[in-house]
Design a protein around this nucleic acid. Sequence first.
RNA 1: GUGGUUGUAGCUCAGCUGGUUAGAGCGCUGGAUUGUGGUUCCAGAGGUCGCCGGUUCGAACCCGGUCUUCCACCCCA
Length: 457
Amino acid sequence: MAQKPSIAKGTRDFGPEEVNKRNYIISTIKSHFETFGFMPIETPSFENSETLMGKYGDEGDRLIFKILNSGDYLSKVDDALYTKKDASALTSRISEKALRYDLTVPFARYVVMHQNEIDLPFKRYQVQPVWRADRPQKGRFREFYQCDADVVGSTSLWQEVEFIQLYDTVFSSLGVEGVTIKLNNRKILSGIAEVIGAKDKLIDFTVALDKLDKIGEDGVKKEMLEKGITEMAIEKVQPLFSFTGSNGSKLESLKTMLSTSDEGLKGVEELSFILTAIDALGLKTSNLELDVTLARGLNYYTGAIIEVAAPERVKIGSIGGGGRYDDLTGIFGLKNVSGVGISFGLDRIYLVLDELGLFPPSVTTTTEVLFLNFGQNEALYGLKAVKALRESGIKAELYPDDTKMKKQMNYANKRGIPFVVLAGESEMDKNTFTLKNMNSGTQDEVDITALIESLRA
RNA sequence: GUGGUUGUAGCUCAGCUGGUUAGAGCGCUGGAUUGUGGUUCCAGAGGUCGCCGGUUCGAACCCGGUCUUCCACCCCA
């Protein structure tokens, strides 16, 4: 009984064209990672559960795909636990492995486990799939690729400067001009919370502030009030709601607002350093913008927070993000190692390139010439030429079956193969080939040298 | 995890207040056309109406559950 084929929720198949396009993006990103001095590593697709659990908050734990133990996993569960139906307690007994949730935590584990083999500061890049048991949505899947570059073992702000340059280089190279690299700093957000006397509500405060462009000033204020932030406190940060002007003037106004917070001022100083450096170095096509509402991934970022927005005409939002996290490896017992890194959102970059028509035509590679098959002797004659063409770097193939010519021509046509070679008895007698241009319909009878020459052009 | 939405041929979709053999376009296969594809013409194949149950004389259509799709929230790339 045949079953209806299906694929798991939130996963996708990729056809030849999609794979070629995705590979184009990935290889562009990788080549720039390398010119910036990053080195590749790979980690397993699944880790021991304890490596991942508890690193992404309660919400994160829920979204981690757990792998059921092999064998009779229920035999290890005592009746009391089983009857209690406590999912989280039961999970730890029947599942000891879990699928990779991101590339950062496995990287931290890698650094700690291999600390004697690597030289700090260590710059690594990693392009691998990750899995999340999330509910799928537009541009969000349960299996997707992350393209990460991180540096560990240096607190220097020059790293942040380098990462901004890297973003600019990659997007310019892909032809995506006019992206906006948004920059913020956790210390500034902390400072603001401190100044308004809501230090304990930092997360609530920033999560609400982050939604400013989405739900507007009134919506943000409403959410803040709901979370128990006082009206007086909100009053104090009123300037944040209409924060415009140059990066310089924004910094000035932050400096005033945060004058009583040492941490906040430190954040201003760090931002100022980065902005000055980028100003001096220049960017190819990107814009750099100080954005105090930027607060993603706040759970672990401790300094810089970076996010890249697609050009305005493409309504797709964020296409990359990153930041600084002090003590990245502390959870695995290696103290005082700071990390900073960025990530490229492959799927969304794909959508941007597709929408703007930025994939080079050469990305979709097809066979350049198809030899029609007229029988055993003709096939062998053709295959000798195919071999010669391949040695000249031309993508060539022979139609495998001796079927009707109409069928073979049709196949070439549908695959978009630009040239077809007809070589039957009469050509074999003369040691020639009939080369047909499928676009114009014209054809010429040529010898092997001329065949290679005309296909090479 | 919460709320909503979608599912009919390989694909995109019609299908009336519940009524007999569920349709179209595209695609596919064969032929017109035995060494010439795209265009045209002719013929043909292809459907447990997502799945399970219920209501009814009768269900693609109504009801419940479930899976899936897409959207919003939460969160996030």
